[in-house]
């Protein structure tokens, strides 16, 4: 792995402003080495699978969640030359339009930042132990599966390898 890559993982109940968080983190970096920042912000929709959704509860596995988000970041840092990776993810009660997840990647060149950012969000969705429970007019329901990124077949293959085989 690129030992110089900074990795910061925040798993928190409090809501966050992704722009503010990115700017505050940038202020801690040597920005003169950065040629690009790619950010992905996942926000809550007020509908899913044909139902309106008034709020959502995000369950997680404290300790394992942080560990596996960090592992995904480390893998990204091994694959691409990136300077810094910041991931923030909520748990607990979420309201429509709230930011759920932020992935921000700083690098010298844009291609690495785009690729690493996409890798982190896709693998995080496959591996990090979070579970969404939606409140709909018909009651509460656990989300059974995430929508796939069509370009992320590698992520799906990776997830299959960790699924129960025995």
């Amino acid at each position: 792995m690129n030992a110089k890559t900074g990795i910061t993982v925040l798993v928190q109940e409090e809501s966050f402003d992704p722009c503010q968080l990115t700017a505050a983190h940038q202020a801690t970096l040597d920005a003169s080495k950065c040629g690009g920042i790619v950010t992905f912000v996942g926000t809550m929709r007020d509908y899913n699978d044909g139902h309106s959704v008034s709020s959502m509860y995000l369950d997680h596995y404290p300790g394992m969640t942080e560990r596996h988000v960090e592992k995904v970041c480390q893998e990204a840092a091994e694959k691409w030359e990136v300077i810094d990776i910041l991931v923030a993810h909520r748990y607990g009660e979420i309201k429509p339009s709230d930011a759920i997840v932020l992935v921000a990647v700083w690098s010298a060149h844009r291609a690495n930042a785009f690729d690493a950012c996409r890798f982190v969000i896709n693998y995080l969705k496959e591996r990090a132990p979070f579970w969404k429970r939606e409140s709909t007019p018909a009651g509460e329901r656990w989300v059974e599966h995430n929508t796939k990124d069509p370009a992320a077949e590698a992520a799906a293959a990776s997830a299959a390898s960790i699924r129960r085989t025995g």
């Binding site: 759920i100 997840v101 995080l124 969705k125 591996r127 132990p129 579970w131």
Partner: peptide, 10 residues
């Protein structure tokens, strides 16, 4: 040991 359904974060 933990048992859980497929994860749905992000």
């Amino acid at each position: 040991v933990a048992f859980f359904p497929p994860v749905t974060g992000g």
